[in-house]
Amino acid sequence: MRVMVMVKASPSSEAGAMPSEQLLADMGRFNEELVKAGVMLAGEGLHPSASGVRVRFSGRQRSVVDGPFAETKELVAGFWLWQVRSMEEAIEWAKRCPNPMPEDSEIEIRPVFEAEDFGAEFTPELREQERRLREEIAARG
């Protein structure tokens, strides 16, 4: 199963504070463990929400809202995409992670939808389109 592992933002990450050399080294070692175990598929840190925008949808209307966004505890500061056997395995990996922030922090883990999760609505034609798109993305990698 694939899971998205989200590092929640904190006041310091939203203020643009960069990680210390020690935290970068600790995270580098943790990421190396994940890669060697075949768990890590991707992972990146994100700039503070002041650098971002939100696109809101209301029927056919679209509006853009510039950051920063108020609710720090609801924002994501970074992410990993992991391939694990179970949610329990993902939790065990997350518990081994260095604290990603200088203050108390939180990591959220959520399963990624797989093709079989969508049922009959995900027709053979749509599955074939998805397969082609994934191949195209992989070829660009």
Rank of each mutant, 00 (worst) to 15 (best):
A50L: 07
L126E: 09
E103C: 13
E21N: 09
M1E: 07
P102T: 12
P102G: 05
D66T: 12
E74F: 09
R29W: 10
R85S: 10
P48S: 07
Q22P: 00
R140L: 12
I91A: 10
F30E: 01
E88T: 14
N99M: 04
R29G: 02
R132A: 09
T72C: 09
D26M: 06
S105H: 00
E92S: 12
I91Q: 10
L133M: 13
R56F: 07
E116Q: 14
E21H: 04
A9I: 00
E106S: 04
G141V: 12
F122N: 08
A15H: 05
M40V: 07
S86R: 07
A77L: 05
L75D: 01
H47L: 15
M1Y: 02
T123H: 03
E125Q: 08
G16P: 06
R29T: 15
R132T: 11
S63F: 00
E88K: 09
R110D: 07
E21C: 00
M101C: 09
S13V: 01
E128Q: 08
F79D: 01
A115R: 11
N99Q: 07
R134T: 07
E14F: 01
G28M: 04
A17K: 06
S86E: 11
V76H: 03
A94R: 12
F30H: 07
S63D: 14
A42G: 08
E116V: 13
F69T: 08
R110Y: 03
R85V: 05
P100N: 00
N31D: 09
E21D: 15
R127T: 05
A15C: 06
E121C: 06
E114D: 03
R131M: 10
F30P: 06
A9P: 00
W93P: 10
M1A: 07
L126V: 09
R85T: 12
V5N: 02
V35Q: 14
A17I: 14
E44L: 07
G78K: 02
T123Y: 03
R110T: 05
E44Q: 14
R60N: 15
D66A: 13
G43T: 03
E14C: 04
K73R: 14
G38N: 10
E92H: 13
R62T: 14
M4L: 15
G52C: 01
